[in-house]
Computed example of a mutant assay.
Amino acid sequence: MSGFHHVELWVTDDETTWAEWSWLLERVGFRLAETWPGGRSWDAGHGYLVLTTSPNLQPVPHDRRRPGMNHLAFQAGSRAHVDAIMAAACAHGWTALYQERYPHAGGPDHYAGWLENSAGFKVEVVAS
């Protein structure tokens, strides 16, 4: 068996963080599995995503342009569902990226939207 078991992202512990991620993860098929002070786990059936804080978190902002994770890509279902997510995202703390090339910023055969949240985390929502 292959694939990811889970991914853990360190985030700041504030209501904006939880609201932004909760909104997006629900739209791409994750369900909230567990909560604890300073963290949440979201299940996708075959793996899970952990958003948590840490006492070891450095007081510098996330920068996807530095070595490390650039973005997470989520399967979002139909093209219409990707369009709906992109249309509603800014009302939920996400900024659309590459709008001038939407929905084919990844190439003519790739239907997806890219978003960035207030902390600088980038995600891609991809049509099946």
Results as ranks from 00 to 15, higher is better:
95 T>H: 13
99 Q>W: 01
26 E>L: 09
5 H>M: 03
40 R>T: 14
119 A>Y: 03
85 I>G: 00
30 F>H: 03
28 V>G: 02
41 S>T: 15
31 R>Y: 06
63 D>I: 06
52 T>Y: 00
12 T>I: 00
107 G>I: 12
91 A>D: 14
50 V>T: 08
22 S>I: 09
128 S>I: 04
80 A>D: 04
7 V>F: 09
8 E>I: 07
19 A>N: 14
9 L>K: 10
6 H>T: 11
7 V>M: 10
11 V>P: 03
1 M>K: 12
99 Q>G: 15
113 G>H: 00
89 A>L: 05
5 H>T: 11
118 S>G: 11
116 E>Q: 15
79 R>Y: 02
126 V>G: 00
87 A>V: 01
47 G>N: 07
89 A>Y: 10
33 A>M: 13
114 W>S: 12
121 F>L: 12
86 M>I: 14
82 V>Q: 11
77 G>P: 07
15 E>P: 00
67 P>V: 09
83 D>W: 04
92 H>S: 04
25 L>P: 05
34 E>R: 09
45 G>S: 08
63 D>P: 06
6 H>L: 06
88 A>S: 13
123 V>N: 03
91 A>S: 10
123 V>T: 04
88 A>T: 11
68 G>Q: 05
68 G>W: 12
69 M>D: 09
11 V>H: 02
100 E>V: 10
49 L>W: 10
11 V>L: 04
26 E>K: 14
41 S>R: 15
42 W>Y: 15
114 W>G: 07
17 T>D: 04
122 K>H: 08
120 G>T: 02
21 W>F: 14
54 S>V: 08
109 D>C: 03
42 W>I: 00
6 H>F: 09
8 E>Q: 15
88 A>K: 05
91 A>N: 09
71 H>W: 11
38 G>P: 10
48 Y>S: 14
110 H>T: 09
14 D>M: 11
117 N>R: 07
3 G>S: 12
3 G>N: 12
17 T>G: 01
11 V>Q: 03
49 L>Y: 12
123 V>E: 03
119 A>D: 07
110 H>M: 07
75 Q>M: 06
117 N>I: 07
52 T>R: 11
70 N>G: 06
34 E>A: 09
99 Q>H: 05
92 H>Q: 13
97 L>G: 01
11 V>D: 00
99 Q>I: 03
36 W>H: 10
104 H>S: 10
76 A>F: 08
87 A>M: 04
12 T>Y: 06
